[in-house]
Amino acid sequence: MPQIEVENLVKTFRVAERQAGTWGALKGLLQRRSRTVRALDGISFTMEVGELVGYIGPNGAGKSTTVKILSGILIPDSGRCVVMGRIPWKARTAHVAEIGVVFGQRTQLWWDLPVIESFDLLREIYRIPPREYLRTRDELVAMMRLEPLLDTPVRQLSLGQRMRCDLAAAFLHRPKLLFLDEPTIGLDAASKLAVRDYIKRLNRQGVSVILTTHDMDDIEALCRRILLINRGRILFDGALEALRAQVSRDRQLVIVLAHEETWVEDPDAQVIRRNGHHLTLRFDPERISAADLIARITARYEIRDLYVENPPIEEIVAQIYYEEGTAL
């Protein structure tokens, strides 16, 4: 049985329309105008135990609405949603005891208290048996190297340190399912790598993860499967490579020229970027193989270095958003 089953989920919100100016504000007091926004327009998917799914889409696409419904914060207008055999909002306390949620933008730790005190309080909140708590905590502290941070008040932590502590905090009660909402937002490169590594390790322990992010490097590093949502509908559900193939088969050959002024031309490839000695060519591997193209180019021009790469996932996603007519 899938861990998450979502079928035809619909959620609409009423948004109050404010009128401009003082007069508008006064009028708004008497008659409220509102319009209905369809945040989720019938989404369906299933997820198995142990999966790590990337949930992507532009701002306002319906990502957080989905996560809020799955975690029991919001009740949908219609549709079916079963998570670990439960309807989240019908059994709130039982449900949330088995999930963990991290918001990258906010902390769930107590601002003025040392990290360890927050952990201890969470033990009480989740009613974790003391021995089990100590085992999990020590394990997480060792894995994420939190030892030097434990006695520091949360407000004094750097963003990267705080994120590590928040990840650990969300995992203290050993949830079977983790929701991570932009866990790498605002982090420096080293912290990002560390956080990704921890996510991977938690997932390897059998925890399912739904990762919402705008950082395509997160997706490439972590997710075998992605769900792409826009305007409340799921546009794509599958492997990253399949998404790439669906949008375009093109690959890119980057060459470093010996002489900047060299003019490069090829019947089967197209120059898409030129930056000093660096030149990016796009080609369709069905028309010409990478090996043939490289052989031809190196025979004709003086090349210092070259490599083949996939178009960045950002470009692919941007193209889909664009085709959908979303202004970004």
């Binding site: 914060i73 949330v96 005891a97 918001f103 906010r106 769930q108 909140i125 989740y126």
Partner: peptide, 13 residues
Amino acid sequence: RSGDFDRLLLRPR
């Protein structure tokens, strides 16, 4: 206003 009320709903208490 800050949206932090959601966190309370995410705890089994």
